[in-house]
Write a protein that binds this DNA or RNA. Sequence first.
DNA 1: TCTGCTAATGTAAACGTTTACATCCGTCGG
DNA 2: CCGACGGATGTAAACGTTTACATTAGCAGA
Lengths: 336, 336
Amino acid sequence: MSTIKDVARVAGVSIATVSRVYNGSLQVRESTRQHVREIAIQLDYSPHGAARSLIMSETRTLGALLPDLYGEFFSEVIRGIDQTAQKHGFHLLVSSSHAHRPSLEAAIRSMRGRVDGLIVMSPERYAQPPRRAGAARRLPIVLLNSPAEGEGVDVITIANVEGARSMVAHLIGRGHRRIGIIGGAAHNIDAEERLQGYRNALRDAGLEPDARYEVTGDFSEKSGYSAAFELADRDPRPTAIFAANDAMAIGALSALRSRGLRIPEEIAVAGFDDIPMARYVDPPLSSVHVNISALGARAAERLLFAIRHATTHAPQRETLPTTLVLRGSTEGTTVQ
Amino acid sequence: MSTIKDVARVAGVSIATVSRVYNGSLQVRESTRQHVREIAIQLDYSPHGAARSLIMSETRTLGALLPDLYGEFFSEVIRGIDQTAQKHGFHLLVSSSHAHRPSLEAAIRSMRGRVDGLIVMSPERYAQPPRRAGAARRLPIVLLNSPAEGEGVDVITIANVEGARSMVAHLIGRGHRRIGIIGGAAHNIDAEERLQGYRNALRDAGLEPDARYEVTGDFSEKSGYSAAFELADRDPRPTAIFAANDAMAIGALSALRSRGLRIPEEIAVAGFDDIPMARYVDPPLSSVHVNISALGARAAERLLFAIRHATTHAPQRETLPTTLVLRGSTEGTTVQ
DNA sequence: TCTGCTAATGTAAACGTTTACATCCGTCGG
DNA sequence: CCGACGGATGTAAACGTTTACATTAGCAGA
């Protein structure tokens, strides 16, 4: 790789001039500009990112710390972040499997000087990331679906409680009285909130939550599969199952089918997230729609704003709404 | 953020000593080491990535250039790359939507000084990335599922032709004679190779490929959905459909169901990739299994090797095998 | 006490840029 | 013909590290 010095030498100008050509400074004669450009192409020169970052103290890179990368949910979040970052000329540095506090802190430290800000998704309840440290200027951070802690940090969340509540309320409205839930991973804030929404809906309808109808999964298809078996064995059997995410709901569909239960006639099933796959399973899955990539995009936008207005920026909390999407798995007749 | 200078000043030592503490050099007295560590923690110091990259001329970061980020396939690839990178202490910089040549080249340039090597996935046939440039040392690159060009560059691919051939051969073995295919995006090398495997299998069995049974999709569920309608309208109707990926196969299942066709009795369906979701659709989808995250992991390993042995490294081509996974969508009785 | 050795620490250059400031050169008004 | 001005270019410092080399301190052996 050639450096700016090589280009300057071959072109017979100073490195300052080459630099100016690349930064679109007006202060350079057209003929010089073209000459430098030509030489640069000949030498296959491109500016060295690290050197640039160092002197400018900006990396034009966003960091994303995720608990995992498995499944359509994360892939959609990343897609949203990446699109927005790219639109603003930023790169994206991702890093996964930081479920727990120490690993998270280490990851954050290791990113100093590599990113201008961080999107942190850390739904574990006992793993709040940001410490407030000394007077030093801190790295802008946006928390995604993570326990709040109220401190001066941006947070973006999904309307988990309300989304779950309205889906379960809908089921009740259709006459269901015994509604089971397949909960998400323990200590996970999304899981907790969705469970709470489920209970709220029951109470609102004068029904008492029954522990026997609450089974815990871990957000994977597989755990949904086995949880559905458990619920199907209860006596009396629930007439509807609400799963805390679509992957588990899809696992449940598969399990219930293998038990010979007709869906939704004998047992209705609903999920949460409305991943793209949801409309293609059989029967098409009713779900609480979340615009996942928009969630990522929104986080990136807020982060970019925080980076640009580091001084004047006042952290906010923002909650993305959900909508009910009703398909064949709850509605009797198949709705495409 | 504090710098190494701050730490040195407060601790009353030189910056060299602080640096040595952080790089585990043996040349520093235990008492000094501890003292420096304490001060560093007090000042919340962490080394500046860009500065380090600059002087050491290594970033400990892998770059991944992908055509897109949509769907489980890419998400799995990224997961494999990230896991391997992380295991070796590397970060991962991702960048998507570089379907076409100019965008790809620009992206590669923009990564100089930010990554130590690049994994490039660029299945577009007219978009071969690497030019060979002057004597200058080049960035190590591993091509993933991309047109070969044989030049001195590492390539990892899937056994597309063979995988498709063996699935279609299996269908023929079960008595199918009219087999339709839902092909992938135009100019996409995976799509082309899978189509070729399909045709090979037919010819091997003495059947002539029939253009009326070859429909083109774009790898999305949606395109599979409409392509399946087309195929179902052919007279005589095919008795089996092979889709070039699982997303399209799942879309096809949904379409065929809505036409009231029983699967697999009236029409069998098979996919390619064996994404996690495949076993949970109804009926469970037969597919050509590819260990997608292993694909990513393998690419990362090769890249790391190339980085470490930049001088002696001889580029290779490697093809990952596939296996047939037969489930209910082709097998008559539901196999879990 | 002096020499010489080792271990611990310090000094300063280098990595590849950007940019404030200095310099140069041509032009124009007086 | 001179001075001033402005546009184009050059010079050098700075960003935060690592590390070769220099220096220092301490100590053993003569």
